[in-house]
Every structure is written in structure tokens, then in C-alpha cells.
């Protein structure tokens, strides 16, 4: 257990000193603040432009626009940033060989995987929560109203998708070799899942649904019960991914 804490401390230190924490914090703060602001400003930007007599009718934006802007940012650039930031955490150690001494000290191999995953999940949770809170506060401030029971569940779905994605990254980087293997394979898996999500029959079983229906959940065009099975499937796949990573890493020749 002591080894687990020591390695976890090292992970936090590493994320901090290799700029990963700063990147996550900056990006998610920007998204949290910028999304409602952009929704609010959009009509005004248009009206300030000289449209040469063409009338564009933009309805007055509501909190729904703010939230859909937030989810759009998070599911696009946000998840790409998560992928970039975390895809190196195992590959870097394996290509450089920094784990050799650590493992020769008797640190169990599964500890490496579990500790890295735990730290990644914590960082994702904190930065995502910060972004969500900021976004909510700004939305309330700018639009004066937010309603809908879907908000929390919708936020939870995207969070869970992030947790799933981190498991995919861990698995991909234990399987592959080389500097960018983990990054490319994770990206490949996610793209494949997105493609599969274009078929309505797959959507129920596909974790990507958790990141595709967030705005709909808030606008009540998608009901919570539609996504509950997907939530459980995603939880299962995440656990499976981590177990598989531990198993593969255990057998890996260093």
C-alpha cells in the first residue's frame, strides 16, 4: 500500500512538472467561462456586423444554448485535450525505461496501472467539475435561469465517458509500443466507436452515446431512461479495459 501511495504521489508530481495539470486547468477554465459567453454574444456579434440589408433572425439565446455550447466544446476539443494530455503517461515510461528501476524495487505491476488510472481520473474529475461549475455559474449569471432535471445526469454522462476514455488510453498504451502508439490506437478506437454510433442499433450499447446526447438530455428531447443501459455498459467496459491492461502489463517483457 505504501508503494501505491508513493507512486501516486510521483504521478501527481509528474503531471504537475510536465505541464499536464496546467494545460488541463487552463483549457477547462476557458471552456467553462467561454461557452455561456459565446452563446450570449452570438446574436450581438451578428447584429454588429453590417449585413448589407440581409436580415438574419436569431432568436434570443437561452441557457440551453449555453449548455449546448459547453458540451460541444467539451466533446470536441475537450476530449482531444484529454487524449493528448494522458496518452503519454504509460508510453513515455515504457519507451524511456524509467519503470525498470521502480519495478526492480518490488513495486507490483498492477499498482502502476491502478495508480496511473486513479490519478488520471482524479485530474479529469477535478478539471471537468471546475469547468462545469464555472459554466453553470456564468450561465445563471448571464441568462438568469437554468432549469431541467437533466443537467446533472447529462454532466454525469460526459464525465463517465471521460472515465471510459481514460481506460481506453491506458489499455491502448499498454498494448502498443513506441512514442505515439498509445495515442494513435486510442484515437482509432474512439473513431471506430463514433462511426458505430451512426447506426441507431448500436447506440444503446455504445459509450459514445454518453457524449452525444448531453444537450438533448437538458432540452428533454432525450430521456434519462434511454441512457441508463449505456451507463452500465460503459461502467462494465471501463472495468474490463483496466483489468485487461493489468493482465497485459503483467505479461509484458521489459
Amino acid at each position: 500500500m505504501r508503494g501505491f501511495f508513493a507512486f501516486t504521489k510521483k504521478e501527481f508530481r509528474e503531471h504537475f512538472r510536465t505541464y499536464r495539470i496546467i494545460i488541463l486547468a487552463a483549457v477547462f477554465f476557458i471552456f467553462g467561462m467561454f461557452s455561456p459567453l459565446r452563446a450570449k454574444m452570438l446574436p450581438e456579434i451578428f447584429s454588429s456586423l453590417d449585413m448589407q440589408g440581409i436580415l438574419i433572425n436569431i432568436p434570443e439565446p437561452t441557457y440551453l444554448d449555453a449548455y449546448s455550447q459547453f458540451f460541444k466544446n467539451m466533446t470536441q476539443i475537450g476530449l482531444i485535450v484529454v487524449l493528448l494530455v494522458f496518452s503519454g503517461m504509460i508510453t513515455n515510461e515504457l519507451t524511456k525505461g524509467t519503470l525498470v528501476i521502480i519495478l526492480s524495487k518490488g513495486l507490483p505491476r498492477h499498482t502502476v496501472i491502478l495508480s496511473k488510472y486513479l490519478v488520471a481520473v482524479i485530474l479529469w474529475t477535478i478539471s471537468y467539475a471546475a469547468a462545469a461549475v464555472l459554466n453553470h455559474v456564468y450561465t445563471v449569471y448571464l441568462f438568469n435561469q437554468v432549469s431541467g432535471e437533466g443537467v446533472l445526469f447529462s454532466l454525469f454522462c460526459l464525465w463517465l465517458f471521460g472515465v471510459f476514455m481514460l481506460a481506453v488510453i491506458i489499455l491502448a498504451s499498454t498494448i502498443t509500443q513506441g512514442n505515439y502508439g498509445g495515442l494513435l490506437l486510442s484515437a482509432g478506437i474512439l473513431i471506430l466507436l463514433m462511426v458505430l454510433n451512426m447506426f441507431p442499433k448500436c447506440q444503446r450499447f455504445n459509450p459514445v452515446s454518453l457524449a452525444a446526447n448531453n444537450a438533448g438530455l437538458i432540452a428533454n428531447t432525450v430521456s434519462v431512461s434511454d441512457l441508463v443501459p449505456t451507463v452500465w455498459i460503459t461502467v462494465g467496459l471501463t472495468a474490463l479495459g483496466i483489468l485487461l491492461s493489468i493482465f497485459i502489463f503483467q505479461e509484458k517483457q521489459l
Binding site: 487552463a26 494530455v85 513515455n92
Partner: peptide, 15 residues
Amino acid sequence: QIVGPIIYLTIGRSE
């Protein structure tokens, strides 16, 4: 903006 520095710091930066 935003993405440029991130790409550099995550995958472009030397180890």
C-alpha cells in the same frame, strides 16, 4: 489558439 500550445507541450516537447 489554445490547441497550438497544448500540442507542443504534450507531444512536441522533448522529453
